[in-house]
């Protein structure tokens, strides 16, 4: 896997999440991800692997990643020096269908990450869209401020309505497309709520080893049997293709 050294232009802490920006003028599709790490191998043996992050935003010149500190890899990125290493954009992103909307965007926790750049793309295509975000509590929900008009739910009720992201969302069957990112149980619930005939695309969160399809570590079960890699065949899947 090829990594590029990039300078962190800006770092921001939004509620429970960290946002880092770096210059990237190559193309990025909403829903694609990058593998990122603090320093050049073989300098660091622990953590050994890079971490996958969906792109949060990209304006053509500056890309950003939003993440939650969950372990050593993310903790080091959180207080990294001004340079990190990133892969090129990887994976299959969201497919925008031909409908005019309105479409629904749903994020659970750090699953909010790819919705910003997707929202930007939908704006560019003049597709009206509603954003629904669910979090554990108000601290994490602070990132909803980056999504004007978003409806928010928190598990503990400390911000927005009390409950999950689906408690903040109306009947999803009224939308011409549904896009979601979050933990697998949330995605399964969104898939059910969207209905069988929906154009529904889900971005899965999986641990990854390589990011380029080689290690077969990041698989998800598919309806046709067996497993496919979220780094190559995903991370965005048609809901109907997934076995859950």
């Amino acid at each position: 896997m090829k990594f590029h050294g990039v300078k962190i232009e800006d770092r921001e802490w939004i509620g429970g999440y960290t946002l880092i920006r770096y210059r990237w003028d190559g193309a990025i599709e909403p829903g694609q991800f990058a593998m990122a790490r603090v320093a050049g191998y073989p300098v660091t043996f622990d953590p050994f692997l890079a971490r996958p992050f969906s792109f949060y935003d990209h304006d053509g010149e500056t890309a950003s990643l939003l993440f939650e500190v969950r372990g050593r890899g993310t903790a080091l990125l959180d207080d990294a020096p001004d340079r990190i290493e990133v892969s090129s954009p990887l994976g299959r992103g969201f497919r925008i269908n031909g409908a005019n909307g309105p479409v629904a965007l749903l994020g659970g926790g750090i699953g909010v990450a790819p919705l910003k750049v997707l929202s930007r793309r939908l704006d560019a295509l003049s597709v009206p869209h509603d954003v629904f975000l669910g979090f554990a509590d108000a601290r994490y929900a602070a990132v909803a401020g980056e999504f004007p008009g978003a409806k928010v739910a928190t598990v503990d009720g400390s911000a927005g309505v009390q409950g999950t992201v689906l408690d903040a969302a109306p009947d999803l069957t009224r939308y011409t497309a549904v896009y979601a990112c979050g933990p697998n149980p949330m995605l399964a619930a969104v898939k059910r709520a969207a209905g069988e005939d929906a154009f529904c695309q889900l971005s899965v969160e999986e641990r990854m080893g390589c990011g380029n399809g080689s290690c077969n570590g990041c698989v998800v079960p598919v309806r046709d049997g067996g497993y496919v890699r979220s780094c190559i065949e995903g991370p965005v899947f048609d809901a109907e293709a997934l076995a859950w």
């Binding site: 043996f45 622990d46 953590p47 050994f48 692997l49 890899g73 999986e206 641990r207 080893g209 290690c215 077969n216 570590g217 990041c218 698989v219 998800v220 497993y227």
Partner: peptide, 8 residues
């Protein structure tokens, strides 16, 4: 899955 786990 899970199929992989990072170690030092």
């Amino acid at each position: 899955p899970p199929r992989i786990a990072e170690t030092p």
